[in-house]
Amino acid sequence: MRRREFIAGLTAAATAQSGAFGQQSKQARRVGVLVGLAANIDMPVARAFLKPFREAMGKAGWVEDGNVHIDYRFGGALSDLANTRASAAELVALAPEVIYAQGLPATLALRQQTATIPIVFTQVIDPVGFKLADSLGHPGGNVTGFVVWDFEIGGKWMQLLRELDPKLAKVGILFNPDTAPYAPGLVAAARDAASGVEVIELQAHNDGETEAQIEALGRERNTGLLVIPEPFTNGHRDHIVAQCARFRVPALNSVLGAVDDGALMSYTFVWDELVSAPVDYIDRILKGASPRDLPIQAPRRYEMVVNLKTAKALGVDVPPVLLARADRVIE
């Protein structure tokens, strides 16, 4: 082949490749993400959420700013409902092909904005009760996803506290009623499993109320605390852990990161798995599936974590049988 023809061939190939890349860029798909439990992308909750999500998208073949463009919005550090609704409206206005929602407030806000754009959620409880879906097996609308747990986990939490302290006499259940509309179902399940243990609701709206509630509980003997993971307790995680240490109250606290930062025990879903699992549904929707036909799923795996350093500081002897069942022990 003559040099002139060779160069012409290279030029034509380069032009074709450039044109194909330009065409691919124009055809990039659009996905929205509403992180309900964070105010911005720099918050620990946001980073912990987005890392496994992005890794799962990459494994599914979706390259950010390559064949997919992702718009991120945030609900607020304490799930400010007004901010969550505003962020949901912004995302819907961008007309993405599918939106990934973290948490119940974010999912409800998005559903109020659109009945057509597919929404895939995570960390939601009772989606049928909150009218997000017709049923778990057949959602029937534009919303599907992965529940965080069902109400029965409240009984499991109570059971673990009773195993931790056979002399347990009273358990306080901490939550903010304004940010945890699903709390009554969890409290009811905990009461059913209490078996003679007194159960009291500790409703708190700010740090002052939280401190007073935990201090009062700490004045009594053979008490324990059950912290319901929800927007308020997520946002006030460190304060709650600190007050439990200060007033020597053993707590089962399944808020993300609480046990690593000093809470005594947690029992909940495996975070990375729950966050990344919905990417399969996002991938399928981008390829033509309808959310109405994708069943709502439960977490694939739960784990129990015990912090022995905290147990020692509180003077709590963790029963060997309970310790042997732990998936992870912090020493």
Score class of each variant (00 low, 15 high):
Arg2Gln: 14
Arg4Tyr: 05
Arg4Phe: 09
Ala14Lys: 08
Ser25Tyr: 09
Lys26Ile: 07
Gln27His: 11
Ala28Val: 05
Ala28Ile: 04
Val31Ala: 01
Val33Glu: 01
Leu37Tyr: 13
Asn40Gly: 09
Pro44Lys: 07
Val45Asp: 04
Lys51Pro: 05
Pro52Val: 09
Ala56Glu: 08
Ala56Asp: 06
Lys59Asn: 13
Val63Ile: 13
Glu64Pro: 02
His69Val: 14
His69Ser: 13
His69Tyr: 09
Arg73Glu: 11
Gly75Pro: 05
Ala77Gly: 07
Ser79Cys: 14
Leu81Gln: 15
Ala82Phe: 12
Arg85Glu: 15
Ala86Gly: 02
Ala88Arg: 05
Val92Gln: 07
Ala93Asn: 12
Leu94His: 05
Pro96Val: 12
Tyr100Val: 01
Tyr100Arg: 03
Thr107Leu: 01
Leu108Arg: 07
Leu108Ile: 08
Ala109Leu: 10
Leu110Met: 10
Phe121Tyr: 02
Pro127Gln: 01
Leu132Glu: 04
Asp134Ile: 08
Leu136Ala: 08
Pro139Gln: 07
Pro139Val: 07
Gly140Gln: 02
Thr144Met: 06
Trp149Gln: 15
Gly155Met: 09
Gly155Arg: 10
Lys156Phe: 04
Met158Gln: 08
Gln159Ala: 15
Arg162Trp: 10
Arg162Asn: 08
Asp165Met: 10
Pro166Leu: 02
Lys170Arg: 14
Ala180Gly: 01
Ala183His: 09
Gly185Ile: 08
Gly185Ser: 13
Leu186Ala: 01
Ala190Val: 02
Asp192Pro: 00
Gly196Asp: 02
Glu198Phe: 03
Leu202Phe: 00
His205Met: 10
Ile214Gly: 04
Glu215Gly: 01
Glu220Ile: 11
Val227Thr: 00
Val227Lys: 00
Pro229Cys: 11
Pro229Gly: 10
Thr233Phe: 05
Asn234Cys: 11
His236Ser: 12
His239Tyr: 11
Ile240Cys: 03
Ala242Met: 06
Gln243Ser: 13
Cys244Glu: 01
Ala245Glu: 04
Phe247Lys: 06
Arg248Pro: 03
Pro250Glu: 01
Asn253His: 10
Leu256Tyr: 14
Leu256Asp: 14
Ala258Val: 02
Asp260Ser: 11
Ser266Thr: 13
Tyr267Val: 00
Val270His: 02
Trp271Asp: 05
Asp272Cys: 08
Pro278Ser: 13
Val279Lys: 09
Asp280Pro: 02
Ile285Gln: 05
Leu286Met: 00
Gly288Trp: 12
Leu294Cys: 03
Ile296Ala: 05
Pro299Tyr: 02
Tyr302Glu: 00
Tyr302Ala: 00
Val305Ile: 15
Lys309Ile: 01
Ala311Met: 12
Ala313Tyr: 05
Val321Gly: 06
Ala324Val: 11
Glu331Arg: 15
